[in-house]
Design a protein around this nucleic acid. Structure first.
Lengths: 194, 194
DNA sequence: ATTGGAAATTAACAAATGATAATTGGGCTT
DNA sequence: AAGCCCAATTATCATTTGTTAATTTCCAAT
């Protein structure tokens, strides 16, 4: 099966493309495999590429005082990117790591942008992609503003069923913004309540 | 002086427009004055308009268990919007309130989008606007992930000098994600340390 | 199957934050 | 200028979370 189909489907959610246009985009594509524990982006690196996960699981994290603090998890059919590299062309302040062996379709963001002259309608798709990203980003902000750690934990389980079987609890703990010990206590409380 | 000049300058940061194109955009513009304590958006309302602050000061907040929790402050030359309305055409889950008497230039987002066929280069400007928004949004996420309340407070003072003279400390407290009492203690600690 | 090592849980204690209430301070109205 | 109302500070106490360490559980490698 053609891996590229999946990202095509993803793009076509946002707008239609002719086969010829699609081939132009495909010419920028690269398939990348990342081993478990290896990185798509490291701190300090300028990475202007976006990755589309064919299979596997990733996270991004900040390194603060030697501690890894997870910001987000990504799974199949999701887009991973370091916005600093893509939008600002600046060195990343975060790491993007494969939690499992991960296969990605990689597209250079600026080169993709530069195809808009050749591909009518590409701008519309990019706008839709960015809008999509904004929605996710704002939901994450809202989750910090209005939710407790326990609520964030429950939301993660709901939004990403199965994620607990894929990643360490200590990663989830920092995603939820507590220590592993506290997450353990939250889980104990929830289990008792049931 | 022409208020519309300021939003034109703002847009032109992201791309050039001819006078004719600009007039087309201007035809969508509306000047809106909002009294202190009044709202640009209320919870439940579908608002697909973006506002550009000519003068004044605003904030958005969520209402949770009767508590107002501030998510962001906006000042002159910044754009205010409820992404749920603009992007998703859904009822807002938040309020946008004028903290001071505020004058806005208001543009309907979807109508603006629909001008792309008539205005070459508008899509590029919209992309730049969205990218700009993503950067701000991700910085806010990062601030929750890697910073302590004290650090968030210091960052706000640095990024928005003078904001403390414009808004109540209780608003700042919830922005920083602590109670007013705790913010007061943080301030006392900082004053002593100096 | 055994074993080594890290992750998760549990317990005990320290530190920080929240909640409540009393006091002080500042701004607005009359 | 006086008085009132709400915001901000301070104090006290309760609750929660972090920290450290001990114990158990889970994987992975041999």
């Amino acid at each position: 099966m053609n891996n590229s189909l999946s990202i095509k489907n993803f793009f076509q959610n946002f707008g239609q493309l002719s086969n010829k246009d699609w081939q132009l985009i495909q010419s920028l594509e690269q398939i990348v495999d990342i081993d478990k524990g290896e990185y798509f982006v490291k701190e300090g690196q300028i990475k202007d590429e976006i990755g589309f996960i064919i299979n596997g699981c990733m996270r991004y994290f900040y390194l603060k005082d030697g501690e890894e603090i997870t910001g987000e998890f990504w799974q199949e059919n999701e887009i991973v990117a370091a916005y600093e590299g893509c939008i600002l062309q600046k060195p990343s302040s975060l790491y993007i790591e494969a939690i499992e062996p991960t296969k990605l379709i990689v597209l250079p963001y600026r080169k993709l942008r530069s195809l808009s002259d050749a591909i009518a309608g590409l701008d519309k798709i990019i706008i839709a992609l960015l809008e999509n990203f904004i929605v996710l980003s704002q939901e994450r902000v809202a989750s910090f503003i209005i939710e407790t750690p326990e609520e964030r934990y429950l939301r993660l389980r709901k939004e990403m069923p199965g994620i607990e079987d894929r990643v360490h609890q200590k990663y989830i703990a920092s995603f939820v913004a507590v220590t592993p010990v506290t997450l353990s206590r939250i889980r104990a409380r929830l289990a008792k309540r049931k």
